[in-house]
Design a protein around this nucleic acid. Sequence first.
DNA 1: ACCTGAACACCGTTCAAGT
DNA 2: ACCTGAACACCGTTCAAGT
Lengths: 229, 229
Amino acid sequence: MPSPTHRAQRRTDALSRERIVEAAVELLDTAGESGLTFRVLTERLATGAGAIYWHVANKGELLAAATDAVVAAALAPGGSQASPQEEIRAVALGLFDAIDDHPWLATQLSAQFSRSPWGAVTPRIFERIGRQVSALDVPQETWFTATSALVHYILGAAAQNAANAVSARELDPSVDRAGFLDAAATAWEELDPDDYPFTRAVAAQMRVHDDREQFLGGVDLVLTGIITR
Amino acid sequence: MPSPTHRAQRRTDALSRERIVEAAVELLDTAGESGLTFRVLTERLATGAGAIYWHVANKGELLAAATDAVVAAALAPGGSQASPQEEIRAVALGLFDAIDDHPWLATQLSAQFSRSPWGAVTPRIFERIGRQVSALDVPQETWFTATSALVHYILGAAAQNAANAVSARELDPSVDRAGFLDAAATAWEELDPDDYPFTRAVAAQMRVHDDREQFLGGVDLVLTGIITR
DNA sequence: ACCTGAACACCGTTCAAGT
DNA sequence: ACCTGAACACCGTTCAAGT
């Protein structure tokens, strides 16, 4: 029973690139990467396929736009004037949480990375992190390498974490995080001692670790390397 | 004009998982990720689709097997008993070169990473690097985070590099590496000074950098962080 | 300028049937 | 046990036709 106010909200009913991207993100969030299809998008938006193609060149561009929209939102505020280190940690955590909320983002981000390294998303992240690195009082010759290392670590680690979260849900939705970690750690402990001594040795650590804490630990580690050199 | 010796080689003509994976890798190398299709695979192997499905569950498994095969080869020898740092650099370079030779590996590696974090490839890399980290004389509590950071950096940076190589080829096959870097650097220098001050500042660095050197620089940076902490 | 929707080419996967 | 190949369901994309 929509009130007139709601109707007014729906009045801007015309198709637009924005509305399409929005619907795509929703679909990705709820149905995963394989759930984003021009057919269901067509139903959801109550139009024909051609209509979507009028606003968007192809599926790749749609995926890129969806990724871009979510990343832009995650990078948005920034807020206070903390130290460069704290800013970097904040940006990193923002991306970490975004990937956690939109697990498809992980794959997409590295795909963007691969397809057009300097398309739209990557430069935003690179610039955002790099600006803080340059404020870090380290020689300028190290900026490029340092920023690359940070960005690679952040995206890689966040992606890995999202993957863990997804596969945990898929494997057994009833089991909680602790249960999943426990099962994984146990699996590690049962690996062949000759082939996997290290992984076995580290299994206990993995059982009790906190994702965000561990993620930030890695950021600090790279930061330490940057400052020390 | 195949000699009898060659014929003997071709005698083991029966379909096998190994032969299928081999053909898949070849196809991926020459035609890219979108070139790997059950139809052309079927032609190449001169069989029917069902025959392939007898040996391989589905396309995902085939991709995983191809990735696994290439990574296993890249990680294979190891050789000398150098210092842990040197070993880590060697392993890193091995992966770097493998991704450079098989650009599809980059996407696939992070996809594997996402789909089944502890499927087959990732643990191999993790273990290989981790073993050296544990020999690094740093407290055991740091092993997990340190190894994760290294692996994330290595895969991320190598992937980025492969992506650059691919898009360089695609954009204009006639232009060489120096030309590509030059064009990219120029593009960076022409970015909006208000929005992208850092990227602009780092453009010159990017113009003259050497991929492998820069990659190893990042590895050293993370290693420094690990040892310093 | 923007949208419709049937049609096209192509894909991964299945399966009854063969050997 | 292993292979054949037609058939199925589904996909991204195009395009003549409408408004």
